[in-house]
Design a protein around this nucleic acid. Structure first.
Length: 218
DNA sequence: TGCCAGGCCCTCTTTAGGGCCTT
């Protein structure tokens, strides 16, 4: 999207989505790791219309690595509400909208684990900006969130590795993906279902998939 | 006590190994 902001990208009919990000005590909920912060934005027609951010107390001390990685300290979590309380509110926020995250398998595992602890479920499906970016931005130096934000010249003022900021950046990346589909393939306001297909399509088969959609949807 | 992930994707592949992403 060059120096263009998402407001000028012209995306108007995109699906309503929740773009989310978790900070956690580690990499694996199966190994006992918990969420310590959640951030999310609601995208309607490509615009952020609502935000959600909360720290939560995981009931354990976080490591020095996580403190320095996120900037979230044990002191900050001491006064935060417990995970279950925050996650119940977050469940209400996400409704049954479809969800997007960068490396969604990671955030999905934590969302599922935390909601399972409070006997909640959700109805949305996940889209992954990492899997799509690997297919569409093959010339990027790598596909870390920060690198892609820089690669697309997305305005970045804030701290990566905080949940709401990363969710905001992922939302801008998602809009950048929609813009790329329009600019390079003539696909206007690609539906979420197409992004899901792109996620799962082998790189080799992508040109024919996009060519077909270009004819059908534009 | 201390162990410490999982899924995708490429390739010197499929009877496997290793890098990339996420914290």
């Amino acid at each position: 999207m060059g120096m263009m902001g998402i407001e000028e990208s012209g995306i108007k009919r995109a699906d309503t989505l929740i773009v989310l990000d978790f900070e956690t005590t580690g990499l694996s909920p199966d190994m006992g790791d918990r969420t310590i912060e959640v951030g999310a934005v609601k995208l309607v027609a490509g615009d952020v219309v609502e935000r959600f951010q909360a720290l939560m107390n995981p009931g354990m001390r976080i490591s020095g690595f996580i403190e320095s990685y996120t900037g979230i300290s044990n002191d900050m979590l001491d006064s935060a509400p417990p995970c279950g309380e925050v996650m119940a509110d977050f469940r209400a926020f996400i409704g049954d909208y479809n969800l997007v995250a960068h490396n969604a398998s990671f955030d999905k595992r934590f969302l599922d684990a935390e909601l399972s602890r409070i006997s909640h479920t959700y109805g949305g499906a996940f889209g992954c900006s990492l899997l799509v970016s690997r297919r569409l931005f093959t010339a990027a130096p790598n596909h870390k969130l920060g690198t892609l934000v820089d690669y697309l010249n997305i305005e970045a003022k804030g701290s990566f590795h905080r949940a709401l900021y990363d969710a905001e950046m992922t939302a801008k990346l998602w809009i950048g993906i929609l813009y790329k589909l329009r600019r390079s393939y003539g696909i206007d306001d690609a539906p979420f279902s197409l992004l899901q297909k792109i996620m799962k399509t082998p790189k080799k088969s992508l040109p024919s998939l996009l060519a077909r959609y270009s004819i059908e949807y534009s």
